[in-house]
Design a protein around this nucleic acid. Structure first.
Length: 269
DNA sequence: ATGCCGCTATCGTAGCGA
């Protein structure tokens, strides 16, 4: 079974490209971020036409998360326990969507950007990650293979950005953000893509010829609990999807699972 | 080659992204 994560940067602008990619790659479960639409605006039909069910959680033109699956979708959750809201009054944004697909629990996560180290959005980002850590600690020991996938907006290593000096004093590389990412892994969730793709970016800014110059960042990851880790046979980053007209600024990150021995333990029945 | 910002809402311009 193939599961993947992709920040699509507007599903309405990208739906043809995304569905063509699903057909071409045969990915079974795709979790998406930044759909940038409300539920009623999500283009469900193109997915259904190629055999995928879709669940979407979107409240406005910002954020928005979705899951497309051709192996079933059950037990959908539109947030995790303790997640903080944003704004005054605080409102929980559409940044998390969980579902069980083919016996695997998947989460589509869009971690807050943070904007700048001084911005209230940065504190929000750290609170959001701390809340996720508390939930991850509960999920880690589950026998259900569980994957936390998405746009983490954190570059864990200096080599995950094209120029560490360029990012000095910026978000994504700060110690508190990296510590928050590490803290989630300390619950037992391990990042499962890096060992298969040791040096690769998942994002390139649209400006400044960043892609042709390969000046990117690695900020999209898949974390798995021990039950999921036992199934991983490979991973890849589809750099080709950054090419051409109409590309998102992020590319898909794919995880290959051996689910042949997976029983009904992960199903909702 | 991979090519000089793109998406949203809205209709000139602003917010957001990283």
């Amino acid at each position: 079974m193939l599961i993947a994560t992709w920040n699509v940067n507007s599903i309405r602008a990208r739906v043809d490209r995304v569905t063509a990619w699903l057909e071409r790659t045969g990915v079974d479960v795709l979790v998406m971020q930044e759909t940038k639409c409300k539920d009623a605006q999500f283009p469900t039909m193109p997915f259904e036409a190629i055999g995928y069910e879709v669940v979407h959680h979107g409240l406005s033109q910002w954020n928005g998360v979705a899951i497309a699956s051709r192996v079933g979708i059950a037990d959908v959750a539109t947030s995790f326990e303790g997640v903080p809201g944003w704004g005054e009054p605080a409102v929980v944004e559409a940044r998390a969507l969980g579902a069980t697909c083919g016996g695997v629990r998947v989460w589509s996560l869009y971690v807050p950007n943070g904007r700048t180290l001084e911005d209230p959005h940065y504190a929000y980002k750290l609170e959001w990650l701390a809340a996720l850590r508390a939930d991850a600690a509960q999920w880690s020991s589950s026998e259900v293979p569980t994957a936390l996938m998405g746009d983490w907006n954190i570059a864990p290593l200096d080599t995950d950005v094209w120029d560490r000096e360029f990012f000095e004093g910026a978000t994504h590389v700060s110690v508190p953000e990296r510590d928050a990412f590490t803290a989630i892994q300390e619950t037992g969730f391990a990042e499962v893509t890096r060992e298969h793709t040791p040096s690769a970016y998942t994002y390139w800014d649209y400006t400044q010829l960043r892609f042709p110059k390969n000046q990117g960042m690695r900020i999209d990851f898949a974390l798995g609990n021990p039950a999921l880790q036992a199934l991983v046979t490979g991973a890849s980053i589809d750099r080709e999807e950054r090419k051409g007209k109409g590309a998102s600024d992020h590319v898909p990150v794919i995880v290959e699972l051996n689910t042949a021995g997976l029983s009904a333990a992960g199903s909702s029945e």
